[in-house]
Structures are given as structure tokens and as C-alpha cells.
Simulated assay, not measured.
Amino acid sequence: MRKFIVKTVIFFVVFGLLFFVGIMLPATPASKNNMIAYKTEKDSLLMHVATPRIVFVGGSNLVFGLDSEKVKSELGLNPINAALAINFGLVYMMDDVIPRLKEGDIVVLAPEYQHYFGKQAYGGNDLLRLLMDVQPSGFSVLRKEHIPNLIKGIPIYFQSKFIYSQYFYEKEKDVYGRHIFNEYGDSNFHWNLETRGFPEVHPIRGQFNYELINEIKAFDKVIEALGGSLFVTYPGCDMHSLETIKAQVGQVKKELEASGLQILGDPDRYAMESDMMFDQIYHLSKKGVDRRTNLLIEDLNQNKIFSQ
């Protein structure tokens, strides 16, 4: 029995030391060059781009689904695509952007549908990776609701330090790299690439998060206090996948329309055909980017604030 206890203690001590070393190792080349690492440049855009501005906040549906240059040409506003990834969580993305907003900013919020359910609005693996490898100052923005999701991501983060491929980065093959962004914060790297196959979305798990609607309303009040306006819109999404999550999408639409927030479009309007998709249900090809951008411009132009 004593030998068993000693071996058990030794195992946990060795494992604990290995785990600590793994967590504390520097960011791998793959992590340093991941699109997440571009957040520092996006923060710089938010700090330095002149007014009048339109700021896009959300996940990769905006990264891979917007032509900001066309927005600038059509609306006469300086665009900033501040979006990064769904696993940052919508609450963090809203809280983090607030200190960098300027007076009179127009903000377009485009959450992925998963954000509205369960605890997905509080982030995941990508948020942990950002905080550990790119921007530790982001810990100051966290709320207690983020902690369980970040704890769940620790094993994956730990394992990444011991994966061979993480140390041999091939930029030219990486459509999720730091190099994919243009001067507005859009990804245009994939615009000339062929469409790739992808699985349709699984049904969204979890109950509708009514508290998230209150969080968006609070975000709206902050922007209003700055003399700006918030518009909430829907992601460009593969229409076949939309059928799979039709019930949840319908609930999102119902709650948003009852919220009193300014809403752009509806889910069906932003449903994209298969030839408009790139490699995920929210990632659009150039054809899809053009359509989604044109729809957004049309919807924004219907608001009197853009005719001034």
C-alpha cells in the first residue's frame, strides 16, 4: 500500500511539473502567427483610425465575410473590422472594444448564432490562447463567468505546446494566419482560393441566454453615451446549415426583434448559397463576401443616420 501511495505521489508531482512547464513555455510559432495574434493590430486601428468611423464587432463571420473598402466607398465612413473569432465570446469582444471606441462611432455587432445559447458568449480556447500568448492585459477585462470556459480550455492549450506541427509553421498554406488581413482588418487572403468542403453545423446546444440580450443592451447604452449608434445584424451563413439550426435561429430573431435594439436584416436575408461559401458555415468566398457586404450597405443606407 505504501509503495502505491509513493508511486501515486511521484506521478502527480511529475505530471504537475510537466503541466507547469507546458503552460509556461513561450508561444509556439503557429500560435505567434495565428490570426488571433493580429488582435494587437486591430486594437491599433481602433485607436488611430480617424472619425467618422464604422466599427464591426463579432466573430470570423466578419473576418471572412466583409469587404470594408466597399463599405468605405459606399457609406463614406472609415471602416474598422475589429472581429476575430467566435471562441473569444461575444461578452469579451464587447467589453474589450469599449475603451477604444470614439465619439460618434457607428458599431455593427454580428454575433454567430452559437453565441446566443448556453455559455458560449463567454469564450473558449481562442480566448485563453489570446490571453496566454498574445495579450495578457486582457485578463483585466474578464468576468467571473469567463473562468469555467477558460478552465475547460487549459488541457487543449497545454497539449498544443507538445504538438510537433505547432513548431513548423508554413505561412503560404495558412488561411488562418496573421498575414491574412488587409488594412481594414478583413481577410482577403482567401478571395482567390477555391471553395473547400466543410461539414454542416450540428444543432446548437444549450438554452437561450437571455442575459446576453441585456449585455447587448448595455453595450448599446455605452455607444449611445458616446453619441454613436449600435446596429445588430446576422451572420452570413450557409443556407443548408441554417435549416439544421432553424428553431434556434428563429428564437434569436424573435428575441432580437423584441429587444428594442436596431436590427439590420434577418437570418434568411443573410443566408448564402453553397457557391458563396469558403470553408466553414460562416466563412464566405469572394462571391459571398460581395453579396453579404452589399446587403449590409443596403440595410445601413435605410437608416437616416447615413443620409446626413
Rank of each mutant, 00 (worst) to 15 (best):
G76Y: 04
V6Q: 03
Y164P: 00
A37M: 14
G197K: 14
M132Q: 13
N192L: 04
L127G: 10
F181D: 03
G153Q: 15
N81S: 08
F208Q: 09
A30R: 14
R143M: 05
L295A: 01
R143T: 14
E74M: 13
N125M: 10
K3L: 12
V9H: 05
Y270H: 08
V107P: 10
V107N: 07
E215T: 07
N87L: 12
G250F: 11
I281Q: 02
G89R: 10
K7D: 01
M35R: 10
G138A: 09
G197L: 03
A82G: 00
G118N: 09
L66D: 00
L45R: 15
L242G: 13
V134W: 05
K32V: 01
L90W: 01
Q248I: 02
A85F: 04
Y164G: 00
S187C: 11
K254Q: 13
I36F: 11
V252S: 02
A82M: 05
P136K: 09
M24F: 06
V232Q: 13
L261Q: 04
Q302Y: 01
L131I: 07
K304Y: 07
L300Y: 08
A50F: 09
E224T: 15
Y184F: 13
K72T: 02
I147H: 10
A225G: 13
H115K: 06
A271W: 03
R196C: 00
S73K: 14
F208R: 06
G227R: 12
Q248T: 11
M93P: 00
F117E: 01
M47G: 03
E243N: 14
S68R: 08
S307M: 10
H179I: 09
I305N: 00
N301L: 11
R291V: 14
N78F: 05
S165M: 01
Q135E: 15
A271F: 00
A83V: 05
E224M: 08
I163Q: 13
I23N: 10
T233D: 13
D238I: 06
N61I: 02
V249C: 04
M276Q: 15
D268M: 11
A258N: 10
H146G: 02
L25T: 05
Y116L: 07
F306E: 11
V57G: 07
K221V: 06
L150R: 04
G123D: 07
F278C: 04
P203I: 11
Q166R: 06
P148S: 12
R129V: 11
